[in-house]
Each structure stands twice: as C-alpha cells, then as structure tokens.
Design a protein around this nucleic acid. Structure first.
Lengths: 126, 126
DNA sequence: AATTTAGTTTACGTTAACGTAAACGTAGGC
DNA sequence: GCCTACGTTTACGTTAACGTAAACTAAATT
C-alpha cells in the first residue's frame, strides 16, 4: 500500500477544508497534483505538502510563507553558493518562531491566572 | 511619572505600526482613548491593550480573537453565573494555543534539521 | 505672517484567502 | 435511460485589516 493516491474530496475531509481550498492552492502554484483524465490525483507527498501548508496557516503564516518554509527542505537549494544565504534564512525563520513561542507561552500564563481566579471565585461562593 | 499618556504617533512608532492602524482599532471598538480637544490621548492601559492586540496578531489571531482573550481578564465577567462558561472558554483558548505551540516546535525541529544539513554541506566542501 | 509639524475626518482602494453559484462532464447503480 | 455522486472550469462576491489620498485644523517654529 506504499504509494496510494488521494482524491480531492478525500483530502478535503481529512484536513477539514473544502475542495475549493485545495484547488485554490493549486491555482496559486502551491501544489501540482497529477491528472488522470480531467480529475486530480494527489500523491502522498502532495498530501504532506497540503498538511504543512495548513500547519503554517495555524500559526498565522501566509500561504507564501508556508511554502517558503517547506521549500527549505528542497534539495535544489543545496548548491554550495547559496548555502550561506540559506542558513541566514533559516535563522530568520527560527527567530520569528521563537518570538511566537514566547507570545504563546505568555498568553498561556495569562490564561492560567484567569483560571485560577475563576476557580477561586467558585470556591468562595460555596 | 506614574500615569503619563501617549500621543498616537508615539505609540505608532513604539509598536512599529502606522497611526492609521491605531485609529482603525478604535474604529472597530477595540480601544477607547480619551480626547483632549480633537486629539487622542492614550493611557498606559490603552497602550497595553494595543500591545496585547499586536501580540495576538503575531500568532495569527484576528483582532476580534485578540480582544476576546484580553477581555477574559476583565472583572466584569466575574459574576458567579458565568464562571463556568468562562472556564470553558479559557480551556478552549488554551487548547488552541497548545496546538500552535506544538506546530511551532515541529517547525523549529525541521529548521534544526535543515541547518544541520547546511553546515554539513559546508564542511564537506572544505 | 508664513511655514512646518502633528493631528483630524471621510472615503475609496487593495490584498489574501477563500465562498458561492452556474454550467457542465462522467462513471456507476437501479 | 435516468439519477446521483463526484468531479471540472469560470467568474463574480466577500471579509479582514489596513493603505492611500484629499482636505482640513491647530499649535509651534522661523
């Protein structure tokens, strides 16, 4: 079963998006499924790509930013001349992610506080 | 100096946004600075509110979601009848944040991998 | 007095990321 | 032979979050 393929609606329901969304991603050049006749057929790697795009979205990346990160894995960049610029790019992405992580942790701490106050409030009312 | 106030451009440059952005937030009812004559004057708490809105934005929240979180701190909600629903809300926010945190950590791990490969590539070329 | 500097309102424009609808093709089941 | 499910293209619509420009005011500076 290594290398099955997926229909558009199969992926749509799996990821909780509409088929329109997936076609839109193709329209924007983010994915390139093959065709069988008229129909789109998605490979496992197409599927992962969509999954990663949606992961990016969840933390507020634009679609372009998402593929930018995904394509860092692309071996095409691995020519010596651009290795340094690639490293710099990685560093920039990392910094943004670290800041987001701090933001999230700060918010979580805030929520903890609120919850504690809530529970205290409930106890007081007993 | 406890309780100074801020002009719009002061806050704009501090937070790296335009004055338009700050006025827009007011237009949307997210902040309510006082007026001195025609001019807006921002209190320290107005300032914090903007800061928190922008923090929310950085992790992909909409403006509405940001204020929703911010207003969880508002003591107005602290009437016993709604404490349980408040706790549930807090729990939902927390779950989303935790997922985002996982997403970020996964991406960071990916970047680490890329970087290692890069450095390996540079070493090989020596 | 004239200009510069910061502020204001009003209003139309823009981009991303899809939603929604129309109009059509095709393969399988009754 | 027709319906149903799933797919397709084309195209206009929508929402959020501002950008941008015009036209004006008010204080401060030269």
């Amino acid at each position: 079963m290594t290398d099955r393929s997926y229909s558009i609606s199969e992926l749509a329901t799996e990821f909780g998006v509409t088929t329109r969304t997936i076609r839109f991603y193709e329209e924007k050049g983010l994915i390139h499924p093959r065709r069988v006749g008229q129909k789109r057929l998605y490979s496992p790697s197409d599927r992962v790509r969509i999954k990663l795009i949606l992961r990016g979205k969840r933390i507020g990346m634009t679609l372009q930013e998402s593929v930018e990160v995904i394509d860092l894995y692309d071996p095409a960049h691995n020519n010596r001349s651009q290795l340094h610029s690639l490293i710099r790019t990685v560093q920039e992405k990392r910094e943004r992610l670290l800041r987001q992580k701090r933001d999230i942790e700060d918010m979580l701490a805030g929520l903890d506080e609120v919850q504690t106050l809530c529970e205290q409030g409930l106890k007081d009312a007993d």
